[in-house]
């Protein structure tokens, strides 16, 4: 069985994230890392592999700038077998529709029985790439799972929605996404980190995937950011030390604001 895990390299959420002059996410001046939410995807792929009687190959795939290689290294040190890095200057500014095109072409080229991705990227937070991949690849979408298993060519999982918790089932090949409720991701071991150095990382560009530059990037995007403004800092509020009357003072504040 071949599993492809989609992982994204994202700016650190605890750092100072901002926009570049062309209103794309600034990736040059900010520290990046493997999206924490995609660590869950790597973890579930590794568990599916460990629980399978078949030979399973876990490939991690990223579309991103040169530094995105760090995300692949981390996933390899967690235990993935090989990595693919799609990198091309023309990809700068690609939106979700374009990203899904590149990922889908790369997944097809790599070959797959199962695609595993995270629930959302921590920078864009769209949460739509997995559904777009299923649509493009023409395979079942089994997404937002907090529990997942694969047996006899069937993927099963639990999707905890707002109105109900659902049990889902589909035949492979399929696209799966997992949530941060699916189980903590493992830490890379020292052995894993050493082993990762020897694992193959392939590099593909747009021509390797038969994609024209106009189909992606800022110019190929289906959406355009018109303005981006830092949210004005909230005006400093009143802070009171509780000296025994804190609850009453808070009630007065709520009354003054007509909440009670």
């Amino acid at each position: 069985m071949k599993i492809v895990v989609c992982v994204k390299y994202v700016p650190d959420a605890t750092g100072d994230r901002h926009f570049a002059d062309d209103l794309t996410v600034d990736r040059d001046d900010v520290d990046g890392l493997l999206s924490e939410l995609d660590e869950y995807a790597v973890e579930q792929a590794l568990q599916i592999s460990e629980n399978s009687d078949d030979d399973v190959e876990v490939t991690v795939l990223t579309v991103g700038p040169e530094d995105a290689r760090d995300a692949l290294r981390k996933a390899l040190s967690m235990g993935a077998d090989r990595a693919i890095h799609v990198e091309d200057d023309d990809l700068h500014g690609t939106d979700a529709i374009g990203t899904s095109l590149v990922l889908a072409k790369a997944i097809e080229k790599a070959g797959f029985d199962l695609v595993v991705s995270g629930m959302a990227s921590t920078d864009g937070t769209g949460g739509i790439v997995p559904a777009l991949l299923a649509e493009r690849l023409g395979v079942p979408q089994v997404t937002l799972l907090s529990e997942v298993s694969v047996e006899d060519g069937v993927v099963k999982g639990r999707r905890d929605g707002d109105a109900a918790s659902e049990q889902l089932e589909a035949r492979l090949p399929a696209v799966v996404s997992v949530t941060d409720q699916s189980g903590e991701a493992r830490y890379p071991s020292f052995k894993g980190i050493m082993a990762a150095k020897k694992k193959p990382v392939e590099s593909w560009d747009l021509s390797d995937l038969d994609i024209e530059a106009e189909e992606v990037g800022l110019d190929g995007a289906y959406t355009k950011v018109v303005t981006a403004a830092q949210r004005p800092a909230r005006t400093a509020g009143t802070i009171v030390n509780d000296e025994g009357e804190g609850g009453k003072q808070l009630a007065e504040f709520l009354a003054s604001q007509k909440f009670i």
């Binding site: 909230r234 509020g237 009143t238 802070i239 009171v240 030390n241 509780d242 025994g244 009357e245 804190g246 609850g247 009453k248 003072q249 808070l250 009630a251 007065e252 504040f253 709520l254 009354a255 009670i260």
Partner: peptide, 30 residues
């Protein structure tokens, strides 16, 4: 969280929250 607040109480929630609830339920005292 205090960077965001309009009104903040520095205190133990086990003191402040029940007192607030009581005040809301029984505004006479307030």
């Amino acid at each position: 969280i205090f960077d965001l607040v309009d009104y903040g109480i520095v205190g133990d929630l086990f003191d402040v929250v029940p007192q607030l609830t009581e005040e809301i339920k029984d505004p006479r005292e307030m």
